[in-house]
Design a binder for these strands. Structure first.
Lengths: 276, 276
DNA sequence: AAGTGGTCTAGACCACTAT
DNA sequence: TAGTGGTCTAGACCACTTT
């Protein structure tokens, strides 16, 4: 591994420390590692280290919830200073891929924690504290991906996808109707039983049972009116205004692995967003 | 100023460098400076420096768009290392209070820049690239703050507030109806003429003309139906579903200085949100 | 007491911009 | 050429957690 990093180091004119007087050698288009440069842009060492750590996260060398090696140990492994490892981990922590705990170590982020329950659920009650809703699976079936769905999931039209429809309720009041489309190749074997058995956030199940960790998502929000079918499922009058939240979720490598269309009843809840 | 920082330093058991062997002295509840501890919690030096820089931003010592002193100069002024100043500025940059430009320096953030035009405007067209909308001021008047508005703006019920109603259009199509309430004490002299004369983002005008820089905002989003009056202003049928976006904007010191209720037509646009 | 992340410093060199 | 922010290192000590 040391040699590997040395290689990386020489890929940039970045050898500033006196102990490693490797110089010049602007980014050569040599072997095609994951970190190799697509453009001849400058890439600092800590970014390369970050990429290496991310690879270990993706490959499952360190699993969600587990402790990763200490900064000193990683520095030794990669043959860089602790400060450089620290900066790499700083960015990973900012992206919620890992969680730092002073005195204990750095842990792989997981969706099985109270802390991250509301990271992807932005609907909050107008009054009172947020609660996690009850789930009711309405339907689970396999189908062939329509063109639109295939495009969003970056798979071929007609490929197998798993369709899930569920209703989420707060204190027994139906509030969210979700339709999900998941690539069949990744979520093979996902059934209504498994979804119903599982108590907790769906992304936790995906992470544990299918090895797929959602790391970010992109949402498009619109206002729509409930049609007859939706109105019945949410137990409201047809024509009731609803928030339409279309989400694409991504795992490592910016790979889309979930398409979701949520309809939110906002009579007593709202979608919360902080602009910074 | 040097003495001031020395004081700060001794407020924590934080004097780790060998050149400044000030020791112990756990946070005493002494004099009430801006940085003084409300709770006896540990506050690192760079946070204190960050607070001092923020004060200079708030006081207008460095105005929006201007260059602030270099890291080395600030380090000298505050009698700390460049690395400590750097970490303070890193956080200010992450919060969009300043902008770093390699080789040029660090600048005070401003709302008069293409970069930040869409920081507080999340409505994007379903197809094509985002554009900044045309403004049409419908109404500007002074009134006494209703209880609800006063509560949100942290002023007294009945205090003077300025009410603004405007319509924003994309390519001539009315899409956003905004109602704004601003504290009269801060925005004294704001008229329809000034709003109409001014080309560019409203927050830029607030920043330049009223010395009030919005630094963050909190939004609550719901789905509603257009009533008769709204429908007429947006030139749609009554009952059309609209996004209701209720925003409270804050300036330094978490002081609320704007209440805004936007109604967004989402037939050909959507509210974009990235979850990380 | 030992190990972890968190802070702070000092010094070197690199990348970028302006003069 | 000089000045700025950006990266990298090495070493010290602090705060927190566990043994």
């Amino acid at each position: 591994m040391g040699v590997f990093v040395m290689k990386l180091r020489t890929m940039n004119s970045n050898a500033s420390n006196t102990q490693n007087p490797l110089s010049g050698a602007a980014s050569g288009g040599s072997s095609g590692t994951a970190v190799s440069v697509a453009s001849p842009t400058f890439s600092p060492l800590y970014q390369q280290i970050k990429a290496l750590i991310t690879q270990s996260l993706q490959s499952g060398e360190w699993k969600p919830g587990e402790l990763i090696p200490s900064e000193i140990e990683l520095a030794s492994r990669f043959k860089v200073s602790q400060g450089t490892v620290r900066k790499a981990i700083d960015e990973l922590a900012a992206e919620n891929l890992v969680v730092r705990r002073q005195g204990k170590g750095t842990f792989v982020a997981t969706h099985h924690e109270a802390r991250s329950q509301f990271r992807f659920l932005r609907l909050a009650p107008d009054e009172g504290v947020p609660h996690y809703p009850e789930n009711q699976i309405v339907e689970v079936k396999r189908l062939r991906a329509p063109a639109e769905v295939a495009r969003m999931l970056d798979i071929k039209s007609g490929d197998s996808v798993i369709f899930i429809r569920r209703v989420q309720s707060f204190s027994g009041v139906p509030t969210i109707l979700d339709d999900l489309w998941l690539p069949g190749a990744i979520f093979k074997g996902l059934t209504a039983e498994r979804l119903n058995e599982y108590k907790g956030p769906m992304y936790g199940l995906f992470e544990t049972e299918f090895g797929t960790h959602m790391i970010r998502a992109s949402e498009q929000i619109r206002a729509v009116c409930a049609d007859e079918q939706v109105a019945q499922l949410l137990q409201v009058a047809a024509g009731t205004p609803l928030l339409s939240v279309e989400r694409v979720s991504f795992t490592f490598g910016d790979k889309p692995v979930e398409l979701r269309r949520g309809l939110y009843l906002t009579s007593h809840h709202h979608y919360r967003n902080e602009l910074n």
